[in-house]
Amino acid sequence: MDIPRHWRLKKQRYALVGEVCEHCDAKLFPPRDICPECGEEAKTLFQFSGKGEVYSYTAVYEAPEGYAEQAPYTLAMVKLDEGPLITAQLTDLGAQKPAIGMPVEMVTRLLRSATDERGMLIYGYKFRPAVAQVA
């Protein structure tokens, strides 16, 4: 069930908490403790805004184990406003087609299918079209 592995990551996963480098102000997600920009230690927590835009995307039909019930789903690389690029699913697309450059915002969702009645539920970040863009 990988309980500790998921538990350790909860802050990052639920809320996009990464790190900021005190030396060069680079914002890091995922957190990695050594700043890739300047090589100095970077351990200060940083709350990302969750705003970004789609860098690339695709549809997943042949899902890996544990994701089949949500397939087909849209996977994306999202460029966060603060700089980092991250891999995450797009959700709440409705009939909207994803597009490179689409403004998106972070939401916390079930990462895996919840159909295993006995297993623990894994929550984490996904992105959706910014609500203002929809309405």
Partner: peptide, 30 residues
């Protein structure tokens, strides 16, 4: 697919439902 995705970053790529094929598709798309 799950096993091959272990060659990616499990915590930050595979856990998002990534497969190597999907990743290559995103590279190709961009």
């Amino acid at each position: 697919e799950s096993a091959l995705a272990m060659g990616s970053d499990t915590d930050y790529e595979a856990e998002q439902g990534l497969t190597l094929t999907a990743q290559a598709a995103m590279i190709a798309q961009r």
